[in-house]
């Protein structure tokens, strides 16, 4: 009896749903909020963006939960960071989605890190070094110049997967790029005082930001990438800081702030919560305010002393 019902459902459901799928916008599934925001900037009302994770989640540690599988099933384009950031969950998500359009190698599968020059590429691959990424540091979204490169590639990709609206995408992209380049100029000028400032990071999450603004990372609280800070290692960092006049310790919104706060208290430096992505702080509402807030927080902490 139940088997028969299941079979009936199997036949009836696709028939019932055929009628819905005709005229919808291009469905984009972004793995992280920054790419969701970028797709929204570039696609406007032509795209229907859904984001798989929020700013308070660690993008390394997401599970291929049912809601995400359902969304991958229905996506026309999946926009992720790549560079192995999502290696623990995205492959399963795509395999279980039964969606041919978004499989690796298809136009519907976009990996942002493919279009950016990566930093921290390990010369030696061994897990004794912690959770290292063979392709390099994947946290590219902390540098707006990298976002500009991704925007160029993503704009082209949107035109490719939705050729009917190619001219509109091109127009939106040109408009975004102009506003973005102006904003980069503004941020770069605002952040000039930060150049050469020595800082500590909780996770190696900001190398692109440092590369852009010229901040100097003198220590990392995680003894190895992805390994929780230990009391012993924190003590070592504290001792090392006696010789270097560090101004601040940076942690991402999704991280447990306790180790940064401990260092802040014991070394007498500012602990700065970075939005890291769109939605990480109240101020970081979209891509532009993400960097407005990032720079403002860094400047505030830099001036405290």
């Amino acid at each position: 009896m139940m088997i028969r019902n299941v079979l009936l459902a199997m036949i009836a459901a696709p028939l019932a749903l055929c009628s819905f799928s005709a005229n919808a916008a291009l469905r984009v599934l972004a793995c992280e909020p920054e790419w969701g925001a970028l797709a929204q900037e570039l696609g406007g009302s032509l795209v229907d963006v859904s984001v798989a994770t929020n700013a308070l989640q660690d993008p390394h540690q997401i599970q291929a939960k049912p809601s995400l599988i359902a969304r991958a099933r229905n996506a026309d384009l999946v926009v992720c960071t790549g560079a192995e950031l999502e290696i623990g969950w995205l492959p399963v998500l795509l395999q279980q989605s039964g969606n041919a359009k978004v499989q690796p190698g298809q136009p519907g599968n976009f990996a942002a890190a493919d279009y950016v020059r990566k930093l921290d590429v390990p010369t030696q691959l061994d897990r004794s070094q912690g959770d290292v990424h063979a392709a390099g540091n994947p946290h590219i979204q902390t540098d707006p110049r990298a976002i500009a490169q991704v925007a160029t590639a993503l704009g082209t990709r949107l035109q490719q997967v939705d050729p009917a609206h190619a001219s509109q995408y091109a127009q939106r992209q040109a408009d975004f790029m102009q506003r973005w380049q102006q904003a980069i100029a503004r941020w770069t000028a605002q952040a000039a005082p930060l150049k050469g400032v020595p800082v500590v990071s909780q996770h190696k999450a900001f190398v692109y930001l440092y590369d852009w603004l010229g901040l100097k990372e003198v220590a990392v609280l995680e003894p190895k990438p992805g390994v929780e800070p230990t009391a012993g290692h924190l003590q070592q960092v504290l001792t090392a800081l006696k010789d270097v006049p560090v101004r601040m310790v940076l942690y991402a919104a999704y991280q447990d702030p306790r180790s940064s706060e401990w260092l802040s208290k014991n070394a007498g430096i500012a602990a700065v919560k970075m939005p890291f992505t769109v939605g990480g702080t109240d101020g970081a509402k979209d891509l532009f305010s993400l960097f407005d807030d990032t720079i403002a927080r860094l400047l505030a902490a830099g001036e405290k002393r």
């Binding site: 020059r117 930093l119 500009a148 100029a185 770069t188 852009w212």
Partner: peptide, 25 residues
Amino acid sequence: PALTATPAASTATNAPIAPSAAVAP
């Protein structure tokens, strides 16, 4: 990127990070 007067300079000052980068891909 068009409006970045400093990237080359800042990369140079961050010597420990920069060198391996271009080789990656």
